[in-house]
């Protein structure tokens, strides 16, 4: 079996493929969590310049916003540190029972 590199390996492979195709790519990483956040510190999402993405930072609650910031980072190259309070109300809107808070770092992949 190829060496198991887990989720990071999958994200690296996809990001490498996108870069190889000349696409812009941004990477989002959970850098801290409070309460019952759905994804642990280190969880990642990569997005290309068409909005296609792989991985997750929250299990669905805030992916939309993170992808938007990723697209902005691809354009302007500025890293962003995002705070999300995943309230139960927001969670219900997208059919998830999250709760807790997360901080996500978004950066362009060079």
């Amino acid at each position: 079996m190829a060496t198991n590199t887990g989720d990071n390996g999958d994200i690296l492979a996809q990001a490498t493929q996108w870069r190889g195709q000349g696409k812009g790519v941004a990477l989002a990483t959970v850098v801290s969590t409070w309460g019952s956040s759905p994804r642990p510190v280190g969880a990642k999402l990569a997005v290309d310049d068409t909005g296609a993405f792989i991985g997750s930072v929250s299990g669905g609650c805030v992916e939309g916003a993170v992808i938007e910031e990723g697209l902005a980072a691809i354009k302007d190259g500025k890293p962003q540190l995002l705070d999300f309070g995943v309230t139960n109300e927001q969670a219900w809107d997208v059919g998830l029972a999250c709760g807790g808070k997360i901080q996500v770092f978004v950066e362009r992949v060079e």
Binding site: T5, V25, F105
Partner: peptide, 29 residues
């Protein structure tokens, strides 16, 4: 994020050598 650095981190861990990626969250360095 330099793709090369991410690759180095993932491959190093897979080869049994732990690595820490240290990122300044203001500058991105």
């Amino acid at each position: 994020m330099k793709l090369e650095l991410f690759k180095r981190a993932v491959e190093s861990a897979a080869a049994g050598r732990p690595a820490a990626l240290v990122t300044n969250l203001i500058s991105g360095l």
